[in-house]
């Protein structure tokens, strides 16, 4: 499914946070959203997922204006993975992934075969089937993030939005999560901090700066020395990885 945003504006009180953002994501594409702290990545992601209403502008998912779609109908197509969401409740992995079926079930409907299939497929996809009965509180950070993604997959969405899914994870788990997201057979938009990981796993990258789109395109087109200096205020050398054709950024210490 495609995602198209047209002239999105959003802010709180007098502070503008997202300014005139337009972008489009093709079906099956993995789009990276990068930018310095406070550049509006999280807010833009929430506008795209329909969790915030833009002051002006519109978002279309598969050609349909999401403002016209009910919350429930939208969440059957669109999943959102928060940045390290936590709970004190003593839930099991299975309980958490089952929550993903919420938009598909009526108030008192029983648990259907389709629900069970979606949950077990999602658990298998993130390689957590063996942990299904384990308590949430006993999981490591990487396992929790995988369970969150499994819950999003159990929604059987066609579009997935992820807000810094690799935060607080070690490099092995960062790569593992992003590889999984890239290989999923759905459209995804991922906010990321690590520029090299964005370059490695995203088909295209959108650079946000002070709420506006600064650049948009393939990693090697977007990640230039000039852009890194102006937007992120760092000096860096950029080399191409010969086998993948993806840029690699080496920051300079001075």
């Amino acid at each position: 499914m495609s995602v198209v945003a047209e002239n999105l504006h959003w802010g709180v009180k007098r502070k503008t946070i997202v300014t005139d953002v337009s972008l489009s994501v093709a079906p099956g594409e993995t789009l990276g959203l990068i930018g310095p702290n406070g550049s509006g990545k999280s807010s833009l992601l929430r506008l795209l997922a329909g969790l915030k209403r833009p002051l002006s502008g519109r978002v279309e998912i598969n050609g349909q204006d999401i403002a016209q779609v009910s919350r429930r109908a939208l969440s059957r197509q669109v999943a959102f993975v928060q940045q390290s969401a936590a709970t004190d409740t003593n839930v099991s992995v299975r309980d958490v992934v089952r929550l993903g079926r919420t938009p598909h079930r009526s108030a008192l409907a029983g648990w259907s075969e389709a629900d069970e299939t979606a949950v077990s497929t999602a658990l298998a996809r993130v390689d957590m089937t063996g942990h299904r009965a384990q308590a949430w509180q006993t999981l490591s950070g990487g396992e929790r993030q995988r369970v969150h993604i499994a819950r999003a997959l159990a929604q059987t969405p066609q579009v997935m939005f992820l807000d810094e899914p690799t935060n607080h994870l070690d490099i092995h788990h960062q790569i593992e999560i992003l590889r999984m997201v890239r290989d999923l057979d759905l459209t995804s938009v991922v906010a990321l901090h690590d520029l090299n990981l964005a370059a490695m796993f995203c088909d295209r990258i959108v650079v946000l700066d002070e709420g506006a789109v600064r650049a948009c395109g393939t990693p090697d087109a977007v990640l230039t020395r000039a852009l890194l200096r102006e937007v992120f205020r760092v000096a860096a050398d950029i080399t191409g990885l010969s086998d993948t054709g993806r840029p690699h950024i080496r920051f300079r210490p001075e």
Binding site: R46, A49, L51, R71, R72, A73, L74, S75, R76, A79, F80, Q82, A85, A86, T87, T89, V91, D95, V96, L99, G100, T102, P103, R105, A107, Q155
Partner: peptide, 19 residues
């Protein structure tokens, strides 16, 4: 069911289609 969806907070519940 909607109450269960609040496990990870309000925004998460909204993302699961809960008004």
């Amino acid at each position: 069911r909607a109450l269960d969806a609040f496990t990870f907070g309000d925004e998460d519940a909204a993302a699961l289609g809960v008004p």
